[in-house]
Design a protein around this nucleic acid. Sequence first.
DNA 1: TGACAAGTGGAGACTGTCTCCATATTTTGG
DNA 2: CCAAAATATGGAGACAGTCTCCACTTGTCA
Lengths: 197, 197
Amino acid sequence: MTDAKPLRADARRNRDALIAKARELFADGRFDLRFDDFAKLAGVGTGTLYRHFPTREALAEAVYREELAALCDRARELQATLPADEALESFLRGLVAHLHSHEGLARTLATLMATRSGALAEGAQALGEVITDLLTAAVTAGTIRADVGAGAVMMAVQGICAAYDHPTYQADADGVITLVLAGLRRPRADISHAPPA
Amino acid sequence: MTDAKPLRADARRNRDALIAKARELFADGRFDLRFDDFAKLAGVGTGTLYRHFPTREALAEAVYREELAALCDRARELQATLPADEALESFLRGLVAHLHSHEGLARTLATLMATRSGALAEGAQALGEVITDLLTAAVTAGTIRADVGAGAVMMAVQGICAAYDHPTYQADADGVITLVLAGLRRPRADISHAPPA
DNA sequence: TGACAAGTGGAGACTGTCTCCATATTTTGG
DNA sequence: CCAAAATATGGAGACAGTCTCCACTTGTCA
């Protein structure tokens, strides 16, 4: 599914140049560049750009694929080393912090999650799986409620991503995570008010 | 701010025709219609359309203004007749239910909330105020936590709106609201596990 | 090194947005 | 009731992006 074709040398070179230039421009806040001009900037023809990345989203996904993969890896790492609910909390908090300093990723995720096609949303799906796993583990451990699925958490994350440039982004995003986590925390009769470690 | 100019008769007629046709088309799922064709369908010239509604969002906002106002009125009504936290819950649940059967509104709100300009987001702002009021009242009543602001709730709502066409929309949206409400509920030492009345 | 496959690039077709202004309609005041 | 002034109309066409197409270049493989 990931790479079935051994791409010719020059093709790979162009592809990489495209991604590199895109990353650079995105980091600079230039998301809305004309697609044609963008090809020119990367030093390739329009056709080449379109052959490698049929849509703006495809390009964005390629740019952030590694970053997203790293995020997902971290999740699995946390899951392997912490109690389930702490892993979940740590991951979500970290995700939001990361998004705050990587606007491009937030923007891209918002788009990918909203993308109806589904086909190109591979990146978003990976995130979904990771969150599902974290939640499942915590449910199994009995530390969070079982009646709210990962879809709900993803929806909240989508809201966070979509709001990437609100003036009070950071505080609000943290607030959402706080609510989600507190909401998930299973109300146990035997706990009165002790804050989680 | 709302209406400073007493619009000529034919102008008002055209404006209304535009809104009526837009409502009809939106209700039918035709959001993405070519703007020019759309003018033709409403029986006015392109220029007229652009004069009345400079952007797609402006049109969408006009179409849903009443609907949104009704929603806000309901909030105030609830606030006047129910305990603060119940009013909040009732409003949010109702909002999500309404969004579920009015995709166009969800889509529009998602756009308005994401709109950076802010100027045209009047509709979204009204919703924000209503939610702020509901939250403030509940905080004052001491039934919800005070350390998470309305912005966070709005962000969650934005996520719900943005996901209007996900396959599992309803369940996930309900889940988000459940989490938000549970997360807001102030943990009180004197309550063990009694569900709210 | 030749021949075939793979990839390129950029001109230009196409699609939708939006402006402009000569013309038409409404309002106003005498 | 009738100008004149103010207001609004509409649609042709300028414009800005997107994306395709294919004659040509480059890489690969035996």
